[in-house]
Design a protein around this nucleic acid. Structure first.
Length: 606
RNA sequence: GGGGAAGUAGCUCAAUUGGUUAGAGUACCACCCUGUCACGGUGGAUGUUGCGGGUUCGAUCCCCGUCUUCCUCGCCA
């Protein structure tokens, strides 16, 4: 059906349309008033078309303003532009529309920041006027990309036999994990629903129900603080669960999904399946991180044996006391000024290191503050172990292993960035596998679950009965791209006996397990298939594809860092009536009370 | 909850060592201009320098407090 507002979009008209009478509607992107002739760029979702207006036209004389971002519709004739006025940067640049009539559909006031030009407005303002910000090219494209990525995920999952399900948004609080968002119940005074942190239990129950292959573009809610790559409040994940599978079968599904998405929506190179699998402990040892950026060639190698009993007592003592010395090779830095090395040491110290040593190999000479304490044999051995080439340097960290890993995890990306070793034009994926099932709490000394208590321990019951708990690995994995964790997943523990035993090791009696996870355990007692899954983050995936450093740039209506919606003014106070219906009473912390009293005083004075 | 950075016109920024009338670009308003596409030109209006206090003859600048925003640590099965 023909629209009364337009015959064509602003991206459609070409030379072949010359002579047609058309009607276009959109936003006034820019106005160039030359006195005798006025050019208007009319913009809609699809593109832009130049409108030519004769100022003698009645509709022009009657109008006070051509204020940008007003919504108007123009009728007129499509005309070919003369050769020297064609705009090759515009898809419609070979034609223009000579306006014969115009209708103002939605006049705009003065806008708080520019839409047409790159006006770097502060984020709070952009969030308050998000609808304006979303008109801007970059953000508009990001949100479209997000929509297309989600469509493609659905298409892929459906094609390979998965069914999409919906799970409850109002559900029960889960006792472990992140902080929940709670929703008070009106019918049940004093009781609360919780918004799901993830549909974890539901998707497992769908497997127990025999549905075999589940997916959902699932909203998840966590009341935790924000980061650049973590939006507070809510986010979306491609939630996946499969029955009768082993880890590798899940990997194949997800690798296929990422291959599909990244080949379709990015021109950059990316890792093809199978993605490298790196055991957790190896990743920590080599990169000091369980989300390594594999674009960065720098990693740690153990050189403890070379420093054991050496003349550099600071390092020799660390080794003698059970610590480690690890080296990181910085390629082609021999020409760098002293300041580079001093700054790296300062950086390491800020990350918690007591210090950082280095040795530079340059044209057969060795430069280093510590070399005078070392024999030539040790220096040569370090060169071999560190795979040093002439012009390279080694940086050394010595401490307890956990400290060295922590500092190395900070220094490695910093070195990679500073030395320009990270190629922005590739995506490097990897799986981190074999997470430990248990770890020792450093403060209390107790054995605790190190990640997910519901993962299947490798070796099953036998391992739980006979192995040192700290040596037991779980079928638990992460997928990482360019240093960003896209998802965790696991083969689940579907055997009640194994579950009770795992919880027993972590210090939970069977009654406690029944009380907290009774629903799941009962389901597992009535015939549960082996199953597992994963849930790659949609926001982070789009962030990578759009090359955006901040997750808010790929979310249409994000919270700010304080978990507020500045446009809708959320969260907001509830009315007395609402509170009464929900049987709630608000008790503000003192700080907030003081703030409110102050605000009330001020409004009284006014 | 801790640490860091920032806060000056609607927006982006400047303002010498603390110095007298706080400037520029852009947006806005008026006028001029028939081929621009970030059009150009002339002129105009626009400020509680986040807020409160202190030091000083004098504070955008120094000090204290406070608020806001971003980044970060904790947190994120």
């Amino acid at each position: 059906m023909m629209s009364i507002y337009r015959t064509n979009t602003c991206a459609e008209l070409r030379k072949a349309d010359v002579g047609k009478t058309v009607r276009l509607a959109g936003w006034i992107h820019s106005v160039r008033d030359h006195g005798g002739v006025i050019f208007i760029d009319l913009r809609d979702h699809y593109g832009m078309t130049q409108i030519v207006v004769d100022p003698e036209r009645e509709f022009y004389r009657d109008l006070d303003h051509w204020r940008v971002e007003s919504v108007v519709s123009f009728s007129g004739k499509v005309v070919a532009r003369s050769e020297n006025t064609v705009n090759p940067r515009l898809a419609t640049g070979e034609i223009e529309v000579v306006a014969e009539g115009m209708e103002m559909l939605g006049e705009a006031d003065v806008i708080p920041f520019q839409v047409a030009k790159d006006d770097s407005a502060p984020e709070a303002l952009r969030l308050k006027y998000r609808f304006l910000d979303l008109r801007r090219d970059r953000l508009h494209r990001n949100i479209i990309l997000r929509s297309q990525v989600i469509s493609e995920m659905r298409r892929y999952m459906t094609e390979i036999g998965f069914n999409e399900f919906q799970t409850p948004i109002l559900t029960a609080s889960s006792p472990e994990g992140a902080r929940d968002y709670l929703v008070p119940s009106r019918l049940h005074p004093g009781k609360f629903y919780a918004l799901p942190q993830a549909p974890q239990q539901f998707k497992q129950l769908l497997m127990v129900a025999g549905f075999d292959k589940y997916f959902q573009i699932a909203p998840c809610f966590r009341d935790e603080d924000a980061r650049a790559d973590r939006s507070p409040g809510e986010f979306y994940q491609l939630d996946v669960e499969m029955s009768f599978v082993e880890q590798d079968e899940i990997f194949a599904v997800i690798e296929g999904m990422f291959e599909r998405i990244f080949s379709k929506f990015s021109t950059k190179e990316f890792t093809h399946a199978p993605f490298p699998r790196i055991p957790y402990r190896e990743a920590m040892r080599r990169f000091g991180s369980d989300k390594p950026d594999l674009r960065n060639p720098i990693e740690m190698v153990d050189v403890s044996e070379h420093f054991a009993g050496c003349g550099f007592s600071a390092f020799a003592n660390v080794v003698a006391n059970g610590g480690v010395v690890r080296a990181m090779r910085a390629p082609k830095v021999a020409g760098k000024p002293r300041k580079f090395f001093d700054d790296m040491i300062k950086f390491a110290q800020a990350a918690g290191a007591k210090g950082m040593a280095y040795i530079i190999w340059n044209g057969g000479e060795v430069k280093s503050p510590i070399v005078k304490f070392l024999t030539p044999e040790i220096v040569d051995a370090l060169k071999v172990t560190g795979k040093v080439e002439d012009g390279d340097a080694l940086f050394f960290l010595a401490d307890k292993e956990s400290e060295v890993m922590k500092v190395g995890g900070a220094v490695i990306p910093e070195l990679g960035n500073q030395l320009g070793l990270i190629d922005p034009n590739v995506f490097k994926f990897c799986w981190i596998v074999d997470f430990p099932m248990f770890e020792r709490d450093e403060e209390t000394g107790q054995i605790i679950f190190s990640h997910n208590p519901f993962s299947m321990p490798q070796g099953g019951m036998d391992a739980l009965m006979n192995k040192n708990p700290l040596d037991i690995l779980a079928y638990q994995y992460d997928i990482v791209c360019n240093g960003i964790e896209l998802s965790s997943g696991a083969i689940r523990n579907h055997l009640p006996e194994v579950m009770y035993k795992a919880f027993e090791i972590a210090g939970y009696a069977p009654e406690v397990v029944d009380e907290k996870f009774g629903g799941m355990i009962n389901a597992f007692k009535l015939g549960a298939p082996p199953h597992g899954g994963i849930a790659p983050g949609v926001d982070r995936t789009v962030m990578l594809l759009a090359d955006e450093p901040n997750i808010r740039e790929v979310i249409a209506f994000p919270f700010n860092q304080q978990a507020q919606d500045l446009m809708m003014n959320a969260p907001a106070e509830a009315t007395i009536k609402q509170l009464r219906e929900l049987h709630l009473q608000v008790v503000l912390p003192k700080k907030e009370r003081d703030k409110m009293e102050k605000a009330q005083e001020q409004s009284k004075q006014e």
